[in-house]
Amino acid sequence: MGVRVQAEPFDFGAEAAAFGRGLPDVGAIVTFSGIVRADGGAMSEMVIEHYPGMTERALGAIRAEAIARFGLAEALVIHRFGPMRPGDQIMMVATAARHRADAFAAAEFLMDYLKSRAPFWKKETRPDGTDWVAARDEDEAALRRW
């Protein structure tokens, strides 16, 4: 539980169900999953590189910050690395709180931070070749709202 960084696929439904068990004072669970987009068929393969060690450490720190800031009962982050195809699940977060506002906000906080502060890099294969995905200014700007 907590943070998992793995190459293999995960079962989103099973993870969400397991996450929700044994949390008696929780009134709200929010889950999010990120999926590889085909971009109209233009994107055929994605490979995610990461920095073993730092990845777990960064995700652990972001998760701990989310728990403290939003008073969560529990939080889960799963993120994959390696080769993936359109439709595959890349990652998921789950947050559990007494009320929904904190659970929703914490899930957004986790996503905003892990997009720009956890050491993952996406490389995409398209008809014109293979290249690294550039970070977007909006992703960096999204951190300023927290």
Binding site: G34, I48, H50, Y51, M54, H79, I90, M91, M111, L114, K115, S116, R117, A118, P119, F120, W121, K122, W132, V133, A134, A135, E140
Partner: peptide, 10 residues
């Protein structure tokens, strides 16, 4: 010391 481009997870 690690060097890398801006991160693109999620």
């Amino acid at each position: 010391v690690a060097f890398f481009p801006p991160m693109t997870g999620g």
